[in-house]
Computed example of a mutant assay.
Amino acid sequence: MLDLMDLADYHPLRVLLRDGSGAQSLAARALPRSVRAAATALTSSLERDGRTLVELLARAVPGTVPVVAGTPAELGYVRSLRLLSKRCQEFLFQHYLLVLEVLGADNTGSLGYAVATMAHRAAQPLVPELNRALHDFAKATDLQHATRAGVMILENERRAGWDPAPPEPGEQMQTEWADEVVASYFAALADRDTERWTELFHPAGHLVGQSGTRPFIGRPRLKVFMDSMLCQFTALQPEVTTVVRTGPASFRAVWSISAVHYTGPEVTLRGAEELLLAADGLIVSAISDWNAAQVAAQLWPGAPAMPSPNPASFDGQRQSNGPAERWDAAVA
């Protein structure tokens, strides 16, 4: 209608319609209830069978324990449910943009709701159970595959000749100095002080979150890493058990961290930090050695482990009976 009417024609009609138009209409208000009813049919069926949405999303993957079965009908139902939810949210967001164009940002709709609340409504997932399952599956996979984070990009960068080394370390560091750096490193983590933590690093310092993964280089990228860690855990209480010298300017700190995940559960992280120091005591390289998959198992004990794809398989190369083949089977 608005394509054929200017605002002078439309506004009197809008007043006559009041709550009978757009996202305030009876049919539009019924959409979320219909989506939730469709979701309940699926979740009730899974509950009767003792299964979860995360297991269904993981699909049947040969070689994993447990092997998760999902019928084509169930998988198709999930896809349809996701698409229906997406289309409803697209309608709500497009309605917000329409209202923004007609009423302006600092106005209220026909029933007195602020225009900005329409965008907030459009952003809310219509199926909370599915939204949580998508979240849990993604986060569990992040931790299960932490030892491969960024490997595909890192290998491409190395082939292209881009593999910057950390700055030069000091020749001989005092153990007392290293103890102070280690204490400050973990104290800043416990205090959730990103700025103080990044300032312990050389401006071009490296951090490897898992041995062999793509490093975070430079203080701005280190801040990204730390902010991400603090978003994952609302409380962190580290304890350093030992610090030993491994070279003239390198030290290994063995640690455990009691943490509270932002979803609520308490978890324990255990590992070690390999620190390489410059002559002025700044950290030029830090490598974390810990088992992220164990944290995933603590947070989501029912999440099946997905095989990691072989980066070579994306270059048209195949490894017989290897991870890439299992991944292709899972995708198929």
Rank of each mutant, 00 (worst) to 15 (best):
A293F: 11
S308L: 03
V295N: 01
S308Q: 10
W300Q: 07
N310T: 12
P311C: 05
P309V: 08
S288L: 12
A297T: 04
P307F: 10
S285L: 12
N291Q: 14
S288M: 14
P309E: 04
P301W: 07
A293Q: 10
Q298M: 03
A293Y: 05
V284A: 06
Q294C: 03
P307C: 11
M306T: 12
S288Q: 15
S285A: 11
A286V: 06
P309G: 08
Q294S: 15
V295E: 04
A305Y: 09
S288I: 14
A312I: 03
S308G: 09
W290F: 06
P311N: 09
A292L: 02
S313G: 14
P309D: 04
S285P: 10
A296P: 02
A286R: 13
W300F: 11
V284F: 09
A293R: 09
W300K: 01
A305F: 06
P309F: 02
L299F: 03
V284E: 01
G302D: 13
M306K: 15
N291W: 02
Q298V: 00
A293H: 10
Q294P: 00
P301G: 04
P311Q: 05
S285D: 14
S308H: 13
S285C: 15
A296K: 00
S285I: 00
L299Y: 01
N291L: 05
N310H: 13
A296F: 01
Q294N: 12
Q298K: 04
S313L: 13
S308I: 13
W300G: 00
A303M: 07
I287V: 15
A286F: 08
S288P: 01
N310R: 14
